[in-house]
């Protein structure tokens, strides 16, 4: 009992911990429901499906951390557009080499993210409105480039979608943002980002360049959307403009489930991955249990709600009412 309390206290200091615990529980449930889930040979495919979603969640995190209600809802269409550019533009035009395609993918992400950042932090438009406009533009561009779904692949994409040596390719892609995050942690940026998100008035008065920090947060999100676009291309080896917004809302939900405050200043990248894992594992669990397609969304939504309630109950400080008369 006491040890349980100690564990809860440890987790409370790290809000992503609860999401991680629930994700692990769901992982076990998945293995119980379908033992093949634990077979190593199935991992690359499972992870490849998971990676674009996890990366979309990570790509949505820095903007939210930067505070002031900032949010980027154009991440979903952005990563879909980048996927389409790789599959339907770069590869057919002989630019499919990773040395060319990867920088272009990340570059598109950075530019779009920076534009969002300037609109929101520089010109002070409401984040939801500004990035909604970006969302429409990106969706339109994707449809113009690729009116009909198509397939296209390159050997490096195929490897990333399966295995690179012994390692599932998707795992490498998921690790990339963490390396970037770690590198930024060696600079002043991450701490400044959390300060700005925690209290922008205090940060501004102390001399922090709040606008620059926020523009960079959006740019960083865009770069991660580039990684997510590569992951989607690797997983599907095809492009489909109609899938533009499939990741938008789930990615934001994953961030919130992962313990990141939508008010900014509190949260983590790993929480977003854990949040994404929860949502993904509920879906695979329902698949394994052969829940009827007609009920799938309903059950999915309800289980998700349960996960949120559970984690917030654990995270809330216990109401102590010691009124001994």
């Amino acid at each position: 009992m006491r040890r349980g309390q100690a564990l809860i206290d440890t987790l409370r200091a790290r809000p992503w911990g609860f999401a991680a615990v629930i994700a692990i529980a769901l992982l076990i449930a998945n293995v119980v429901a379908r033992s093949s889930f634990a077979t190593p040979s199935s991992w690359p495919a499972t992870l490849a499906t998971f990676a674009p979603f996890a990366l979309a969640a990570m790509a949505s995190t820095p903007q939210i951390l930067s505070g002031a209600g900032n949010i980027d809802i154009s991440i979903g269409p952005l990563l879909n557009l980048i996927n389409i550019v790789i599959v339907a533009v770069l590869i057919p035009h002989g630019l499919g080499s990773p040395w060319v395609a990867v920088p272009i993918a990340l570059g598109i992400g950075a530019v779009v993210g920076a534009i969002n950042g300037v609109l929101v932090a520089g010109m002070r438009f409401q984040a939801v409105l500004a990035t909604l406009c970006t969302l429409f533009v990106l969706e339109g561009v994707a449809q113009k480039i690729l009116p009909n779904p198509t397939t296209g692949t390159a050997s490096w994409l195929a490897h990333l979608g399966n295995k690179v040596g012994p390692i599932p390719g998707a795992l490498i892609l998921i690790v990339v943002p963490f390396l970037l995050w770690f590198a930024l942690g060696r600079t002043a940026y991450l701490r400044t980002l959390f300060s700005v998100g925690g209290d922008d008035a205090a940060s501004f008065s102390a001399g922090v360049n709040v606008t620059a920090v926020r523009v960079i947060a959006f740019t960083l999100g865009g770069v991660l959307a580039g990684v997510a676009g590569i992951a989607l291309a690797a997983a599907t080896q095809s492009g489909d403009a109609s899938q533009a917004i499939q990741y938008t809302l789930p990615a934001l939900a994953a961030v919130a489930i992962g313990g990141t405050s939508l008010l900014g200043g509190r949260g983590s990248l790993i929480g977003s991955v854990a949040g994404a894992a929860i949502m993904f594992l509920i879906q695979t669990l329902l698949d394994s249990l052969a829940v009827s397609d007609l009920w799938l969304q309903v059950v999915y939504g309800m289980l998700l709600l349960l996960a949120i309630v559970f984690s917030s109950m654990l995270a809330a400080p216990r109401a102590v009412k010691a009124r001994t008369a």
């Binding site: 600079t187 002043a188 940026y189 008035a201 360049n209």
Partner: peptide, 25 residues
């Protein structure tokens, strides 16, 4: 106004704004 960043540690609050956006001074 008491302008501190609540979730950040005391040390960060004392040195808030002295670093560049990336550079540690």
């Amino acid at each position: 106004e008491v302008l501190v960043v609540g979730p950040q540690p005391v040390l960060e609050n004392v040195w808030l704004g002295t670093d560049g956006v990336f550079a540690r001074r």
